[in-house]
Computed example of a mutant assay.
Amino acid sequence: MLNQIVMNRVSKMNLTTLKYFISVASLGSITEVAKEAYVSQSAVSKTIKQLEEEIGVELFDREGRTIKLNQQGKFLCF
Rank of each mutant, 00 (worst) to 15 (best):
residue 35 K to F: 02
residue 26 S to A: 11
residue 76 L to K: 10
residue 49 K to I: 07
residue 53 E to P: 00
residue 1 M to T: 07
residue 73 G to R: 10
residue 15 L to I: 03
residue 14 N to Q: 03
residue 56 G to E: 11
residue 13 M to A: 04
residue 68 K to M: 10
residue 53 E to M: 07
residue 72 Q to N: 15
residue 38 Y to I: 06
residue 69 L to D: 08
residue 25 A to I: 01
residue 53 E to A: 11
residue 54 E to M: 08
residue 53 E to H: 11
residue 24 V to Q: 02
residue 26 S to M: 04
residue 60 F to D: 04
residue 29 S to K: 02
residue 65 R to C: 04
residue 78 F to S: 14
residue 24 V to W: 01
residue 19 K to C: 02
residue 22 I to F: 11
residue 55 I to W: 02
residue 8 N to Q: 13
residue 22 I to W: 04
residue 56 G to C: 09
residue 13 M to H: 03
residue 71 Q to P: 03
residue 66 T to M: 08
residue 4 Q to K: 13
residue 43 A to L: 10
residue 63 E to G: 09
residue 69 L to G: 08
residue 38 Y to W: 03
residue 18 L to Q: 07
residue 39 V to Y: 05
residue 68 K to F: 01
residue 17 T to F: 02
residue 23 S to H: 03
residue 19 K to A: 12
residue 49 K to H: 13
residue 76 L to M: 14
residue 16 T to H: 02
residue 36 E to K: 13
residue 34 A to W: 02
residue 49 K to N: 13
residue 46 K to V: 14
residue 41 Q to A: 05
residue 39 V to M: 07
residue 56 G to Y: 10
residue 53 E to K: 15
residue 75 F to R: 14
residue 69 L to S: 08
residue 31 T to W: 00
residue 74 K to H: 10
residue 42 S to R: 15
residue 18 L to W: 12
residue 8 N to K: 13
residue 34 A to H: 04
residue 28 G to P: 00
residue 58 E to A: 11
residue 25 A to C: 05
residue 1 M to V: 03
residue 63 E to P: 00
residue 31 T to L: 04
residue 31 T to D: 14
residue 13 M to V: 06
residue 20 Y to G: 03
residue 4 Q to Y: 06
residue 46 K to M: 12
residue 36 E to F: 04
residue 4 Q to F: 08
residue 51 L to Q: 06
residue 20 Y to P: 00
residue 30 I to F: 05
residue 5 I to D: 13
residue 61 D to S: 15
residue 7 M to V: 02
residue 31 T to I: 02
residue 73 G to H: 06
residue 63 E to L: 14
residue 65 R to Q: 13
residue 41 Q to W: 02
residue 76 L to H: 10
residue 73 G to D: 08
residue 67 I to C: 06
residue 18 L to F: 09
residue 42 S to I: 10
residue 52 E to D: 07
residue 58 E to L: 04
